[in-house]
Design a protein around this nucleic acid. Structure first.
Lengths: 338, 338
DNA sequence: TTGTAAGCGTTATCAC
DNA sequence: GTGATAACGCTTACAA
């Protein structure tokens, strides 16, 4: 390996090592002739500065950390994850930053990861994804003044810099769409009770009903998890009602797909017998039959804002606001068509 | 921020800074009393060593680099990608390594990324995914003796350390499965001609036919890309033949899904009228109707081997072999059921 | 056993 | 303008 240092380049160029550094950093007060000489040698030998030495000296690593709060197994099948990483790499790259990714595997290792990345100065700042509501890292990170941004929500919302989807708006968007299509009896199949996403989308659902002057029917609302099986079970339950809903808002595409399967199995046509809409616009939506309408989350925008805010924080520019909300977008497909 | 250094810990413990370092590195020849004193201070102040300084000194960053040869947009929707990253994080983490991910966005930036990660010493080694057949980075990396591992193939195969799926075996597995089900006229819808994956799976298809004593029918083989549309078009073409195939091997799940759609649209029942099998066992397979049989690629195993070989290389242990082949696994679902 | 000191490869502050 | 020189925080001979 070519263990080249500025020292060696300096010798070969017959200047001091300091001059080599100046040339590299683009210092204007360097004689043009020397500069050319140095640049030639650098090019000839393919010298590249050592990032470790640079970061030790400059106190900047040029690397962002992304910590995802899930087990590798959960990550493996999550389309959200790859989209997020891809977008962060893209935006961070534009600003000259690299990305270091870690997963908070087990609960006990969470602390370790945070230490390993931030306090060891391996990264300049952190993007945390979907932290727990009561995450013990928050107070510490805040206290130590480390640059970090949340994707998700943390209470109180103005305590930290965060970016989040407009989940209330998303729930409303889905429900209003169904109402516009003429539905009057609309069910909501939620995920785990207490989770922000689920509760917020539920709030949006309630609001849309209310604003349209529709009655809220508690028997049309179910909670559970994010699985296809959960959607399947609940859809069956809803279809067993004396007065079943004509449309379903499912908190997640997978849940919606479960509902879709239940309807098809029972010979209920979608959307004629029952319309179904999901959330996240995962790639699945296009390939199920009928294609599934969904409220898309703008992952790229989420990533873009998170990255920008974090880099602003790192580079001591005061970001404009602490909390950013990214609106969602309705993707109409056949499952809610007329 | 607590700008603690070993120097400060040393002062507080009333020992030399070198002793603090020894305690941290677990040097046995340190007086037990001193060790305890130092450890107490470290704990009390929550000192964590600076990784930048460590790596400058030790010439090790404790970070692996992953370079994926695709644009962020392609990555975003690719389920292979998140599974790969998740698995690498997991295995690298077990060995105390972090992961830095980069995408070779544009062609011209490939060189830059390689420089940015390896030659700047930001990472200790590189995992390259699906490099081009004639990737100009290979010779340079080899020449400079940097530790790196390929996921994919590069000719000659023993020039570099690499891990790959058994694509020939995969093609054979899919075809043999269909033959066992009684099919005699089996089509192959491939991707881009010349791509290793496609050619290899095609070889496996040919071999399986041959070994079963079945005739090879050129009109049953189509090439194109990895899109659903390509599968759709080719399936229609196949079904238009005077003697259409009774089964299709599609080089990718998405292509298979396209074929599935074509069959359904034409009222050809799957699998009764035409059986279909794809590759990669993407999450889609479970959610299309009927669920799609697929040959699963063992991404976790791929990642595990790549990570282990790379770390062996970095830590100067000679890996056992240069080329690793990971077998694929048949996942039977209804689309090839009887 | 412990401390002193010499780097690791940069950047940045001095004098010249 | 340019060249010494002092950090940056750590590891590791070498001394004591």
């Amino acid at each position: 390996m070519p263990e080249l240092t500025q020292e060696q380049i300096a010798k070969l160029s017959r200047v001091s090592q300091a001059t080599v550094s100046r040339v590299l950093r683009g210092d204007p007060r360097v004689n043009e002739e020397l500069r050319q000489r140095v640049l030639a040698v650098i090019k000839k030998h393919g010298y590249v500065p050592d990032a470790r030495a640079q970061s030790l000296r400059s106190q900047r690593t040029g690397t962002l950390g992304l910590v995802v709060h899930r087990s590798p197994k959960q990550l493996a099948r999550d389309p959200f994850f790859s989209a997020l990483i891809a977008a962060i790499i893209e935006f961070a790259g534009e600003e000259g930053y690299h990305l270091c990714v870690d997963a908070a595997r087990a609960l006990q290792s969470r602390r370790a990861i945070y230490e390993d990345l931030l306090r060891t100065r391996r990264v300049d700042g952190l993007i945390l994804v979907e932290p727990q509501t009561q995450d013990e890292r928050m107070p510490r990170l805040l206290e130590e003044g480390f640059p970090f941004v949340l994707i998700g929500r943390y209470e109180p919302t103005d305590a930290v810099y965060s970016v989040d989807n407009d989940n209330v708006g998303a729930g409303r968007l889905a429900t209003e769409h169904l109402i516009r299509q003429g539905h009057r009896r609309i069910a909501y199949i939620g995920g785990p009770r207490g989770l922000f996403v689920c509760e917020d989308r539920y709030q949006g659902y309630r609001k849309a009903l209310e604003e349209a002057g529709l009655d809220y029917a508690p028997e049309l609302v179910g909670w559970g998890d994010f699985s296809e099986a959960h959607g399947y079970r609940w859809a069956n339950r809803l279809l067993d009602l004396p007065q079943p809903p004509t449309a379903v808002v499912a908190v997640d595409d997978l849940v919606a797909i479960g509902a879709l399967r239940a309807a098809k199995e029972r010979g209920v046509a979608v959307p004629q017998g029952m319309a179904i809409i999901g959330f996240n616009d995962t790639p699945f939506c296009q390939y199920v039959d009928p294609p599934l309408s969904s409220v898309a989350v703008e992952i790229r925008t989420l990533a873009q804002i998170a990255t920008r805010v974090l880099i602003d924080l790192i580079e001591d520019r005061q970001p404009a606001q602490r909390r950013h909300i990214v609106p969602c977008r309705l993707v109409e497909r056949a499952s809610t068509g007329r």
